[in-house]
Design a protein around this nucleic acid. Structure first.
Length: 177
DNA sequence: ACGATGATGAAC
DNA sequence: TTCATCATCGTA
């Protein structure tokens, strides 16, 4: 009998074309360790924010203190506060100096980006941290095969400010369950 | 349908 | 220094 080892996703995985990684994240697991409890969630909803030309991407107007982590090496977390209440969890993708990231919007267990971070106790302390077990928050491939026919592709949520072209780009991917 | 609630960045 | 804007959610 073959023993499948859960593979931790590192910089190599995230340092690929953002939209490719975005789709590949479906069916992967977000793992969170709090004290001695380790809990994991299967990712089912994500959105890609891809580079300086993407007007929905926070970094499209250049580097600022808030978004500077998007320009760093792939595999870092980008967290920020929205609506004065909710932390958004993103994972940086692509090569250094190319600002891109993926917003984790939902899992099989918890749907909604704000709910997810609330329940997993994710806040600004994760910003700029690498996705590793040492930082108590990371991603794993557990060998789940995702078929294209089970992926739903739609425009991103809440980005009407990005204009007629970029607000309707179908960069949101949902895994049908 | 709307209010909560505060960081951000751009205008002044 | 002020102000509109937000990658949302829970309560109606």
């Amino acid at each position: 009998m073959r023993i499948l080892k859960n593979k931790i996703l590192t910089t190599d995985f995230f340092n690929q074309a953002t939209l490719l990684v975005t789709q590949k994240l479906l069916g992967k697991f977000l793992v969170r360790k709090i004290k001695n409890q380790t809990i994991s969630f299967m990712i089912t909803e994500v959105e890609g924010y891809d580079g300086p030309n993407d007007l929905a991407c926070h970094a499209c107007k250049g580097k600022t203190k808030r978004n500077e982590v998007m320009f760093s090496q792939a595999g870092h977390f980008y967290t920020y506060l929205i609506y004065g209440m909710y932390w958004m969890l993103n994972i940086v993708t692509g090569p250094e100096d190319y600002p891109a990231a993926i917003l984790i919007r939902g899992t099989k267990e918890i749907v909604g980006p704000g709910r997810l971070t609330k329940q997993l106790k994710i806040d600004k302390s994760f910003n700029n941290k690498l996705a590793t077990p040492e930082n108590n928050l990371w991603f794993e491939d557990r060998g789940i095969k995702v078929y294209k026919k089970n992926i739903l592709q739609t425009p991103r949520i809440g980005v009407s400010y990005a204009g007629p072209i970029w607000s309707i780009k179908p960069y949101r991917f949902i895994l049908k369950t």
